[in-house]
Simulated assay, not measured.
Amino acid sequence: MNWMWFHKLGSPKWFYELSGRWLPWLAWAAALLLGIGLVWSLAFAPADYQQGNSFRIIYIHVPAAMLAQSIYIMLAVAGVTGLVWKMKLADVALQAAAPIGAWMTVIALLTGAIWGKPTWGAWWVWDARLTSMLILLFLYFGVIALGQAIGNRDSAAKACAVLAIVGVINIPIIKYSVEWWNTLHQGATFSLIEKPAMPSSMWLPLLLMVLGFYCFFATVLLLRMRLEVLRREARSSWAQLEVARQVGSVL
């Protein structure tokens, strides 16, 4: 098997050039999917027979919760890549993705509270799913804080990688908490591998929203990574030429 692509991906210059070609497509896909998904879910999807229109919060809550967990898994993968293969671009990805994951976790917790009030009669309960999601937010905060507190970049990268790898044990706890413990939180609303329990008029817009959230994440991640790559490679000739080109295009 040819692993040349894997090693090329670790090159900041090669990544910068490749990501520049991906960005427009990802941005347009995110805008299109989120636009159609929002209009469909809020205006045309039928109300739930039990929860009425309050159930529509799932079109934000579920994608945000799924993405928050997926991003942390990505942090762990980036951490392993950085520790094993010493790829500095892995640390760039980890540092760029952590704040996005934290925001997605906040959105999931807030929308969950809004959904929980009419459903459970309380904004917050110390449910296993909610508590493990709160722990996920603290893990994100820990990764961000470590990355900013340690002055030496290599030491900070190792510390963040270790925390990301250790903390990934929380992801299966989040996923299976409703099965392992007696919780108020309902089971999985949406799954990519199982037949949906909802009618197509309800789960198709949810699928569009999930895909839109992931495209949005990829767009923001690449933008943040490109900026960080330029900052770290500021002394290299190619980065200086790229900055000069962008400044010239603006002027």
Rank of each mutant, 00 (worst) to 15 (best):
M1C: 11
N2E: 08
W5H: 15
F6D: 05
H7P: 07
K8P: 10
K8R: 13
W14R: 15
Y16Q: 09
Y16M: 03
E17H: 13
S19D: 04
W22A: 15
L23K: 08
W25L: 15
L26K: 04
W28C: 07
A29C: 03
A30C: 07
G35M: 01
G35E: 01
G37P: 02
S41C: 00
F44A: 14
Y49G: 08
N53E: 14
N53A: 14
R56Q: 07
R56A: 01
H61N: 09
H61Y: 07
A64E: 06
M66H: 12
M66Q: 15
A68L: 00
Y72S: 03
L75W: 01
A76Q: 01
V80M: 10
V84Q: 03
W85C: 08
L89T: 09
A90W: 01
D91T: 11
A97W: 03
A102E: 14
W103K: 12
V106R: 10
A108P: 06
L109E: 06
G112I: 04
K117G: 08
P118H: 09
W123E: 06
V125E: 15
A128G: 11
R129V: 04
S132K: 07
M133Q: 15
I135K: 09
L137M: 10
V143D: 05
A145S: 13
A145N: 11
Q148T: 09
N152H: 11
S155P: 06
A164W: 02
G167N: 07
I169Q: 00
Y176T: 09
S177D: 01
W181F: 12
L184K: 13
H185P: 01
G187I: 11
A188D: 14
A188K: 14
I193K: 11
K195R: 11
S201L: 10
M202V: 12
W203P: 00
P205M: 04
L208W: 07
M209D: 01
L211E: 10
Y214C: 09
F217L: 08
F217W: 02
A218M: 10
L230N: 00
R231S: 13
R231N: 12
R231T: 08
E233Y: 06
R235H: 13
R235C: 10
S236E: 15
S237W: 05
A239C: 02
Q246D: 12
V247H: 09
G248I: 09
V250N: 14
